[in-house]
């Protein structure tokens, strides 16, 4: 079995209103060293794939098909055998 941790966040060029609002709230609480903050999504998925490369393939395609809106989001993932 394989375990994938997938992190989805806004593309750099896309406005992240939630991140902006949270950042200014932190500044009001005097966390002035917070330079930027991005809110994203985190998925954990277990896969019954035959091989690591199969699992890798599946992770990429579920990201593309459903988890990630490629018009505005980007993703990274970690994959390991468990």
């Amino acid at each position: 079995m394989y375990l994938a941790k997938i992190y989805v966040s806004h593309k750099k060029s896309i406005l992240d209103p939630q991140g902006e609002a949270i950042k200014s709230a932190l500044h009001r609480l005097n966390y002035n060293d917070v330079n930027s903050i991005t809110q994203g999504k985190y998925f954990i998925t277990k896969l019954d794939s035959q091989s690591k490369s199969d699992a890798d393939q599946t992770v990429r395609s579920i990201c593309k098909d459903l988890l990630v809106n490629q018009n505005m989001e980007t993703y990274q993932y970690e994959l390991k055998e468990v």
Binding site: H10, S13, I14, L15, D16, P17, N71
Partner: peptide, 14 residues
């Protein structure tokens, strides 16, 4: 269809 430049994101709070 699959190749779009940046989408605008709305911020109703702003």
């Amino acid at each position: 269809e699959s190749d779009r430049s940046a989408v605008q994101v709305g911020d109703p709070f702003m």
